[in-house]
Amino acid sequence: MTPLKAVFLAHTAAPSGAELATLRMVSAMPAGQTAVVYTEDGPMLRRMAERGIETRLVRNDFDSRAMTIRKAGVRSLLTGAAGLLKLGWALGDTMRELEATVVIASSSKALLMGAVAARRARVPLVWHVHDRVSADYFGRWLALVIRLLGRVAARGYIANSRGTLASLWTWRKPVLVAYPGVEFPAHDDRSGEPAEQRPPAETVIVVVGRLAPWKGQDHFLRALAGVRVLPRDVYLVGGAFFDEEAYRAELEVHATALDLPVTFTGHVEDPEPYLRHADILVHCSVLPEPFGQVVVEGMRAGCAVIATRPGGPEEIVEPGLNGLLVDAGDRAGLTHALDTLIADQELRTKLADAARVRARDFDVAQTARAVTDFLTRLSGSRWRRG
C-alpha cells in the first residue's frame, strides 16, 4: 500500500482560526506524511516552516478577496471562480511534485481549486469543513451551490463539529467529525493546580477572537455595561482582518461611551498569556459558531467560561458543570451570566477546575490520529476516470 502523503490546500495564509487549527493538527500528524500548500503569502508559511512542515506557495495571479462571500455580486463571484479553477490546474502540478495521495481542501475556495488539482493529480479530494455552510453565513443560494460542489467534488468530509457536519450534503460518503484540538505540553506544571479566582471587584475578563460583527464584541460591551459590579480589567484580544477595521473603531467608541475598563490588544500571536491571566472567558458570537476553539483554549487555561449557543460550544460546554451557556444575541441573558460569575468566586473556581479536566478531551493528538486514519483509508481508493 502506498504510504500516506496528505497535502492540505489553503487559500489564505492569515493566522485565523481554521489556519491555526490546521497548523496544530498537521504538527501532530506523522512526520513526512503531510504538506501544506498556500495560494497567498502570509505569516502561516513561516509558522509551518518553523515546525518543520513541508510547505509550498503557489501564488494567485488574481485577487481572490474580490469574491468575499458576504459582499460579492454574481459577476465578481463568477470571475473569482474562474480564477480559482485556473489556479487549480497549476496546483495539480504541485500535487504531483509532492506525490500527494490525497488532497484536503481547507475552505470553500480551496474546495473549488482542489477539485481541479486533485482530478489532475488523480487522487481523492477531501473537504475539511471549518464553517457551517448555511444561509446565515453564505446566503441561501451560495450555500446551496457550495453544498452541491462538495457533494460532487469531495470523496469524503472532515467536519470540525457535529453542527458543521449537519449543514452538509454527505449522503453515503465517508465522514469524520474531528474537533480542532489544542496542544498540551508533555509536562504541564499547572495540570493539577486549582484555578486562582479573584474577588468580584478585581475580576479580569477576556474575549478572544477576530474583531468582526458576527463575533459579537459589541453585544458583549453592551451586556457588560449592565452588570452590578464592573470587573477590574477587560481585554479584547484580536485583530481586525478582512477589511473590518471600521468595526474596531466602533467598538472603541462604545467602550469609551459606556466607561468600560477595556483594553484592545490588537492581533497577538499567542493569546494564552491573556487567558492564563483572566478569571472569565466570554465567547459571544451572535451567529452559531462552527466550533469555538477559543472556548477549549480558555478551559485549558483555567478560565470560567461563558459561551453562546447554538453552535459548537454546545458540544464543548456542559452547562453548570464546566461553564455557562447563553442564547446568542440575548443581551439580558449575557448580563445575568456575567453578574453570576463576577459575584460568585466559589462558582468560578468550581467551573474553572472542571473546565481544565474537560479540555483534555480535545487534545490535538487524538484529533491527529483520527484524521490520519481517515485519510489513510481514503488514500487507498485512488481517482479513476469514469
Rank of each mutant, 00 (worst) to 15 (best):
Gly239Trp: 07
Asp93Glu: 15
Val207Asp: 05
Gly83Met: 06
Ala110Leu: 02
Ala343Pro: 12
Arg309Ser: 11
Pro319Arg: 03
Val371Phe: 01
Ala304Thr: 04
Ser108Glu: 09
Glu318Asn: 13
Leu98Glu: 05
Ser134Val: 10
Gly302Val: 00
Asp279Gln: 10
Ala186Ile: 14
Val74Trp: 02
His128Lys: 02
Leu85Arg: 15
Arg228Val: 08
Gly156Cys: 09
His219Glu: 04
Leu20Asn: 12
Leu347Arg: 13
Ser285Gln: 11
Pro199Val: 10
Val58Asn: 12
Arg198Tyr: 11
Leu78Thr: 05
Ala121Thr: 00
Ala212Tyr: 05
Ala337Pro: 09
Val126Ser: 00
Ala110Asn: 03
Glu40Asp: 04
Pro43Asp: 07
Thr349Arg: 14
Thr164Pro: 11
Pro271Arg: 08
Arg358His: 09
His277Tyr: 15
Val126Asn: 00
Gly150Leu: 06
Pro271Met: 12
Thr22Leu: 09
Thr335Ser: 14
Trp171Met: 14
Leu84Pro: 01
Ala223Gly: 01
Val326Asp: 05
Gly292Asn: 10
Arg122His: 01
Gly88Met: 11
Arg360Cys: 11
Gly88Leu: 09
Leu125His: 00
Ala154Ser: 14
Leu324Phe: 06
Val37Lys: 00
Ala117Gln: 02
Met95Pro: 07
Lys71Leu: 03
Gly320Asp: 13
Ser134Gln: 08
Gly239Cys: 11
Gln345Val: 14
His277Gly: 13
Ala332Asn: 11
Leu275Thr: 04
Glu252Phe: 08
Ala14Lys: 13
Pro174Glu: 08
Pro290Trp: 01
Leu221Asn: 00
Ala195His: 07
Pro261Cys: 14
Leu258Met: 12
Ala110Pro: 01
Asp339Cys: 13
Thr79Tyr: 07
Asp344Cys: 10
Val229Lys: 05
Ala255Met: 05
His336Asp: 15
Ala6Asn: 01
Leu20Trp: 03
Thr55Cys: 10
Arg348Ser: 06
Val286Arg: 10
Ala90Asn: 15
Val152Phe: 09
Gly73Asn: 06
Arg155Trp: 08
Thr349Phe: 04
Thr55His: 07
Phe62Tyr: 10
Val317Tyr: 02
Asp189Ile: 15
Pro3Gly: 04
Arg120Leu: 07
Trp141Glu: 14
Gly238His: 03
Gly298Val: 03
Ala13Gln: 03
Asp373Gln: 14
Leu258Ile: 09
Asp361Gly: 05
Glu346Phe: 13
Thr79Asn: 11
